[in-house]
Amino acid sequence: MSQKILAIDIGGSAIKSGLWGNEALTELPSYPTPKTWDEMKAYLKLLVEEHQITDGVAISAPGAVNVEEGVIYGVSAVPYLHRFPIKQELADFLSVPVSFQNDANCAALAEIWQGNAKGLESAALMIIGTGIGGGIAINGKLRSGTNLFGGEFGYQVMNDDTLETLSDLGSPVAMSKRFSNIKADDRSYTSKEIFDLAEAGDELAQEQIDYFYNALSIGIYNILVSLDPDRVLIGGGISTREDLLFNIEERVQQLLLKKGAKELKASIMPCKFLSQANLIGAVYQFLEEQD
């Protein structure tokens, strides 16, 4: 009999969920992120009862998830998740086994398990969203690091004067804010609108996109010369843009050439999984823990 696992992805504004069974994920409707931990527990219990979940609940969460301790450290957009034995409390409350893993790590696990990092000796995954997260995979396992900072590529300092990080300069959300501030026409532009403006010849949009691409390329160059992985995978909604990969690859190659590392062959690809990545990776974490 196949397992039926409830997969949960906790985001700052919404919770995504899905049912894993027969080696496939069936997505459920998303739900606004509850305001308190008690409301969150009640919502999860409702899902467990409604879908008659007996095998377990696999959760992708923001923050520095200590898998061994079952505690989430760090900070996130959902502050009530942090610094208490969340895994044990939830398992007791739901009366089923529960697993937790960091959301960017879940995206990495999905690629290791069934995606574009499968079978590779090493891979680095850069997940581009509001900020930049990621993961490092060595021999099919996540390298979380001594302090759970493995793959936190967004923390790379990119500017010595301002101490701006890769998350500050290489995220589409940060690019949108920067563009809107400079444009100063009382509008908040989305990254898609900025790309559209650039294609129509808007010089400021072109300049900001160039700035964005350069930041990402320097970040990837740093990963390549630090880890020399078999492959760097790019995830997040913006990774579906066909021109993104072309522009990044071109800039990374130029950097490698300029800095005398031309023998370093860079394999850069988009992730296989997009919106379902965190849910699929959470299931893999759960299955690994049960084994």
Rank of each mutant, 00 (worst) to 15 (best):
Thr162Leu: 14
Gln285Trp: 01
Leu120Cys: 13
Ile268Tyr: 02
Thr240Ala: 14
Ala200Tyr: 05
Gln101Ser: 12
Thr162Tyr: 09
Ser30Phe: 08
Gly119Val: 03
Ala261His: 14
Ser95Val: 10
Leu257Glu: 12
Gly135Arg: 03
Phe149Glu: 11
Ile182Trp: 13
Gly18Arg: 01
Gln253Ser: 13
Glu121Ser: 13
Asp210Ala: 11
Leu216Tyr: 04
Leu46Thr: 13
Leu255Thr: 07
Leu47Phe: 09
Ile223His: 02
Gly131Ile: 04
Ala110Leu: 07
Phe246Lys: 15
Gly281Phe: 00
Asp230Ile: 09
Ile209Trp: 04
Pro79Val: 08
Ile138Leu: 15
Val225Glu: 06
Ser167Phe: 10
Gly281Lys: 00
Met40Cys: 12
Gly140Met: 12
Asn159Phe: 12
Asn105Phe: 03
Ser99Phe: 03
Asp228Ala: 14
Tyr80Val: 04
Lys262Glu: 14
Lys259Ala: 09
Val252Ala: 08
Lys141Ile: 11
Glu27Ala: 08
Val48Pro: 07
Ile268Pro: 00
Leu256Val: 11
Met126Gly: 03
Phe149Met: 12
Leu109Arg: 02
Ala266Pro: 06
Gly18Lys: 02
Ser17Ile: 03
Gln285Cys: 11
Ser176Lys: 08
Gln285Phe: 05
Ile132His: 02
Asp160Gly: 08
Gln114Thr: 13
Trp37Ala: 12
Phe286Gly: 00
Gly74Leu: 04
Ser167Leu: 09
Phe246Asp: 12
Asn278Phe: 00
Ser2Ile: 03
Arg241Gln: 15
Asp160Ile: 10
Ala77His: 13
Glu50Arg: 14
Gly201Asp: 06
Ile182Lys: 15
Ala123Trp: 00
Thr33Ala: 05
Ala104Val: 05
Phe246Tyr: 12
Ser267Gln: 07
Met158Pro: 03
Asp230Cys: 12
Val98Asp: 01
Val157Trp: 14
Lys141Glu: 15
Ile209Asn: 07
Lys141Val: 13
Leu47Pro: 05
Asp103Phe: 07
Cys271Ala: 06
Gly21Cys: 01
Ala104Gly: 05
Leu257Gln: 14
Ser188Asp: 14
Gln156Leu: 15
Asn139Val: 07
Met126Trp: 00
Gly11Thr: 01
Pro29Ser: 11
Glu152Arg: 07
Ile194Ser: 01
His82Ser: 09
Leu256Thr: 09
Gln3Ser: 14
Ala64His: 15
Asp202Gln: 04
Lys258Trp: 06
Ala7Lys: 00
Lys272Val: 00
Ile53Gly: 07
Gln276Asn: 15
Leu224Trp: 11
Ser217Asn: 05
